[in-house]
Design a protein around this nucleic acid. Sequence first.
RNA 1: GCGGGCGUGGCGGAAUGGUAGACGCCGGGGACUUAAAAUCCCCUGAGCUUUGCUCGUGCGGGUUCGAGUCCCGCCGCCCGUACCA
Length: 845
Amino acid sequence: MTETRFDPAVADDRWQRAWTDAGTFTADSNSPKPKSYILEMFPYPSGRIHMGHVRNYTMGDVLARYQKMRGFEVLHPMGWDAFGMPAENAAMEKGVHPGGWTRQNIAQMKAQLQRIGFALDWTREFATCDPEYYGHEQALFADLYEAGLVYRKESTVNWDPVDMTVLANEQVIDGKGWRSGAEVEKRKLNQWFLKITDFADDLLEGLGSLEDWPEKVRLMQENWIGKSQGLEFSFDLSDGGKLAVYSTRPDTIFGASFCAIAADHPIAQSLAADPEVAAFIDQCKKGATTAAALETAEKLGYRTPITAKHPFTGADLPVFIANFVLMEYGTGAVMGVPGHDQRDFEFATKYELPILRVVASDPAKADEPFKGEAEAGDGVIVNSDFLNGMSVEDAKQAVITRAESGGWGEGRTVWRLRDWGVSRQRYWGTPIPFIHCDACGVVPVPKDQLPVTLPEDVSFDIPGNPLERHPTWKHVDCPKCGAAARRETDTLDTFVDSSWYFLRFASQPADRPFDPEEVAKWMPVQHYIGGIEHAILHLLYARFWTRALAHIGKISVAEPFAALFTQGMVTHETYSRIDATRGVPVFFGPEEVNRSSEGATLLADGGTVEVGRVIKMSKSKKNVVDPDNIIARHGADAVRWFMLSDSPPERDLPWSDAGIEGCARFVQRLWRLFGQASAGGAGADAEYDKALDRKLHQTVAAVAEDIEALSFNKAVARIYELVGAVEKAPLSSTRSDAIRKLAVLVSPMMPHLAEEARATYGLGTGLVAESAWPDVDPALLVDDEVTIAIQHMGKLRDTVTAPKGASKDALEALALASANLQRSVDGAAIRKIIVVPDRLVNIVT
RNA sequence: GCGGGCGUGGCGGAAUGGUAGACGCCGGGGACUUAAAAUCCCCUGAGCUUUGCUCGUGCGGGUUCGAGUCCCGCCGCCCGUACCA
C-alpha cells in the first residue's frame, strides 16, 4: 500500500457532517438505555472561543463519547450565558446594540465549536438572552416571590459620584471608578434579594452527599456558608442606652478592651450632630465594598464619649465608630479583643488600647507578651476569672450559659452566608418582573404578561441604566388597581440565568420553564465540568435554585450536579520589552515572535524580547493562541489530543507550539499504523501473540478507568505505550486485532481520525462513534511475573523477577541470594526482614 | 486580611506509605537520503574513585524498617472573597 497522510482539512468536515446527518448525538429522552447527562459550564459569548473553552469542552466530549460507547443514552448540550457587562461595554465603545453584538458572537463561536467536532446535541441550544428563556426565568422568580423567598432591602453598592452610576467591583480600580477616575463611595439602594440563608443548613448538609465533588470545593463552600455558634449580648452604655454585639469568640470576653460600631449604626448616626463625627462617618463611606478592600484598608476609628460596661469586670470600655465594622453583619457592632483577633489587634495598636492575653498555649504562659500579631489559635483560657483553665470550646459554652442564666445575652447560631442580592442597575439582563405602585406597593407582573422584554431602542452614550431613562418603558399601569405605576428597572444578576439552565437543557416546553417528568429522566447531571473560579458562587447559587425549586414542588432532585470536576487554565509564556520612554513592558503575541530553545526574537526587527512567566492566556498580555488557526494548521484531533496530554486536567496546561506539533505527528503515526491493520494476520491460532493481547486488554481496561476518573493524561500515556508495543510487535492476527481496537480506543479523543481510518482501511462497520467500547478479558489483566525490589535499610540494592504470588519465604531467599544485597549488608546481623508480597523485600540490620 | 489549592529533571508530568522520574516535549548521537523534510534506532536528574556508590521531589524539623506521599513550622505562586463571568 502506498503511504498516505491523514488530511484533517477534508476528514474533519466529512465526519462532522456524518454525525449531524445521522443524528448521532441527539439525545432521546424516551430511550430505554440508562441516561447520562454530561455538562460543561456554558460559555459567555465574548467573541471568540479560547483555548480554555477548548480544553473544557474536550474533556466533556471525551466523557460523552465514552459513555455513549458504554451503552448510555447521553445528553450533552450546549448554550450561551449571554447576558452580562461585556455586551454593554461593547455597546459603549463601538456604538452597537448589546443584543446584536451578542448574537454575532454566538454565531461565530458556534461555528468554532463545530469545527472541533464536539459530540453536542445542538437541537437543545439556547441563549439566556432569548426572551423565551428569560421569560420562564421571570416566572420562576415570581414563584419564589410567592413562596416568600424573594424580598427587598437596602444594601450597599459602589457609587461613582462623577458618572452618577453604580459600579461593579470589577469596575473599581484602586478605589477609583474605571472611567471617571473618581474616588468611589458606598451608597445605599433598595434592592431585590433571594433568601439563600433559609437554605443555609440544607446547603451545608447537602455537601455531605456530594461524594464525587472535589474535597476542596466542598470545604470552600462549607467555609463560605460558615456556620458558627456564638453569643449575642448587650453592653450597658454610659449614656443609659444599650449596645447589642455578636461574637463568635465569647470565650475571649475577658480580653475585650473596646467596642466598635459601624458608621451607619444608629448610635453613630445619633452622634452625627457633632461635625467631627459627621466628617468621620463621611470618611467611612469612601472606598469600595469588596471584602478584600475592607479587610486590607487601614483600620480607622473615632472615639465617642460613650463607654460600655463590661458584663463581668464592670470595666468601662471605650466605644469607637470604626470603618471595618459593617452594619450588614450581625448587629453592626463588635467587642474588640485585640489579643485574639488580628483586625482588633491592628486597631488597638493604632489607638493604644490594652492588648490582653486570655488564651495561652499553656497556663504557665499566661503573661507571655504578643509577638506583633494576634493569636487566633486554640489554647487554654487564662486571666479570665471563672473561665481559667478551660479549653476554648468549653469556655464558649460556659460564657453562653452564664449570659443566658443572667438574662443579658443568648447563644445564637449564625451564618457567614448572606442573602443573595440579585438587583443590577443595568440593561443587558433579565428584567425583574415587578411593578411599583404608589397605592398597592410592589406588584408582580401577571404571568400571562410574561416575558417582560427589554426595549430595543436604548442608548449607551451616557453612563447609567438605559432602562431608567428610557422614555416609555417603565411607565405602566398597576396590574392590581390600574393606576399609573412604574416598572422595576433593575435586571437580575447573570448568576440567576446560570442557576437553572441545566434544567432547561433537559426539557424545553414552550409554555413552562421545564417539564418535571423530563427533568427527572436526566437529572442530576452526571458530570459537571468547569473552572475552579466557580467553586463557590455559581455552584452555590445553582445548588440553591435547585433546592428552592424542589422546595416549591417544581422538581424532585435536591442536588443538581452528582459529580463535579474543576479543570485548570490554559497558559502560555509571555513576550515583552520594556518601553524605554515610559518604563512599562510592551507585550507581543506568539505570532509576532520567533521562539527557539535559546530565547525569543521579534520577527519585525530581529531584536530579542524577554520570555516571561507562563500565565493564563489574556488579551492584555497578548499571550493568546487562537484555536481556529491551530485547527486550520493541524486539524481538530491534534488540538483535542494536546488538550488531554501531559498536564493533569485539574492543573494548568501550558500551551506550546512544540507540543501541538508533537500531537500532530502522533496523529500521522497512528494513521500509518491503522494502514497496517490487514497486514499479515490471517487469524490462525499459531499467530496468537499473548504478550501483545495482554497489553491490549490491560490498556483497554486502564484507559476506561482513567477516562472515568477524568485522568486523561494517564489515558494518553497508556495509549502511547500500546501504540509503541503494537508497532514493535511482529505481524500477527493479534496485532491486526489490536489495531482495529486501537481505533475504537482513541476515538473519544480523536474521533475524526478514528472514523476516517475505519472507513478507509475497513477496520469495522458503521460509525465508530456509535460502536461499543471493546470488551476486556479479565484473565488477561494479570501478569505472571513481577519485579521484586530488594532493599537494605530501605535503600534499593537489587531487583529480581519472581512468579506472581510467590511466598514470603521464597522472596526472602531470593533477596538473601543477591550478591549486591550481601555486599551492602557486609556480614552485619540481620534484625528484621520485611516482605511486601509481589513488591519488595527490605533487610534491616 | 480571610478561605482553598499547588510546588517532583531543561519543560509538562508519573508514582495504593514500598524500585522516584512511566509517558510526552526539548536536546544529543546514529540510520535512511545527492540533500532536506518525514520516518526509524539509541542516549538524556546531578555528581563520583562507575560490576557500583552518593545526593536528589520548594525550605526546616518529625513519625516509620521505608516518606514525593503522613504530622508540625515556614517560603513562593495560583484561585475565590458575594456587582467579572
